[in-house]
Write a protein that binds this DNA or RNA. Structure first.
Length: 295
DNA sequence: AACTCGTGGTT
DNA sequence: TAACCAAGAGT
């Protein structure tokens, strides 16, 4: 027995009107060129808006087009990425810029399928660029949209760990028919999740669809199911890799192994992480055995 | 499908 | 303070 779904027209009207009144002013929205949108989407993968803003501005000033980034060493992208986290994204953005020059004459492609072929572009990012940069109809399913639909439509506190078929069907069925409205809808549902229907303490008193929300109507039932696993950090390879890469990123000449050893004392783990950083292409070794960002 | 991969603000 | 979690992708 499928869940009764709120009338789409009312859902659309309320959320789109709310978006027009409350949308944030963001640099990739005010001037949504495809390259700017693409850079913002890479940076925003698992990273909050506030931390992206300054890096985004510096990045676009230095590399105003894909060809500009493609012509720079990948290590420069890693350095400019700074402390945004998950630095392999910087490498993938660089590789995507190279692919755009090689396969698309230096212009960010407009179709979901072409975008999906680019390094670092998965389902979400392909849909987001197609929608926000090119105004095309696409099912944009990020963590915000998933949470909004889980609550309003399904009546549960949190979405499943991975995107489920039924969930994609719901999102597709709610997507407005025409391109421009679908694109607004994607941005609006994301914004609602980011500003109102937040994970920890949702601001239901400010929500335009509180009266249509199934989770609210059910009395806010707590998450029921397997506990959602957190992300371990202290002592992990991620922490080790982050510390090692930071040493090289903040240096302006190749770093001697002794300095790397000072940054992480557990030798087996340090060596394992150095190997993985070299393997990922985040580090290079000079002929005399020092570590640098890749050329 | 489950796991890995950074960083730092918020609670 | 420790836990949570943020516009995910790749394997």
């Amino acid at each position: 027995m499928p869940a009764p779904t709120p009338p789409p027209a009312e859902l659309h009207g309320r959320i789109l009107d709310w978006f027009d009144a409350h949308r944030r002013v963001l640099p990739w929205r005010e001037e949504p060129s495809p390259w700017r949108v693409m850079v913002s989407e890479f940076m925003l993968q698992q990273t909050p808006v506030a931390r992206v803003l300054p890096v985004f501005d510096a990045w676009l000033e230095r590399w105003p087009a894909p060809a500009d980034l493609a012509a720079s060493p990948s290590g420069e992208a890693v350095r400019a990425w700074g402390r945004l986290g998950y630095p392999r994204r910087a490498l993938r953005l660089h590789a995507a810029a190279v692919a755009i020059v090689e396969r698309h004459e230096g212009r960010v492609p407009a179709t979901y399928d072409e975008l999906l072929e680019l390094p670092g572009v998965g389902d979400y990012t392909a849909a987001a660029i197609a929608s926000f940069a090119h105004g095309r109809r696409a099912v944009v399913l990020d963590t915000n949209v998933r949470r909004v639909f889980a609550r309003v439509v399904e009546g549960v506190q949190f979405p499943a760990p991975g995107v489920v078929r039924a969930e994609r069907d719901v999102a597709a069925s709610l997507l407005p028919d025409d391109d421009p409205t679908a694109a607004r809808w994607a941005a609006a549902t994301m914004e609602l999740g980011a500003l109102v229907c937040t994970a920890r303490s949702p601001r239901c008193e400010a929500c335009p669809v509180a009266g249509l929300c199934r989770w609210r109507a059910l009395g806010y039932p707590e998450h029921d199911g397997p506990p959602r696993r957190g992300q371990a950090w202290h002592g992990t390879d991620r922490q080790c890799r982050g510390r090692l890469l930071a040493v090289v990123r903040d240096a302006h000449e190749p770093v001697a192994p002794e300095l790397m050893a000072a940054a992480w004392t557990d030798a087996p783990q340090r060596e394992r992480c150095l190997d993985s950083l070299l393997d990922d292409g985040l580090l290079d070794v000079t002929p005399d055995g020092r570590f640098s960002l890749p050329a």
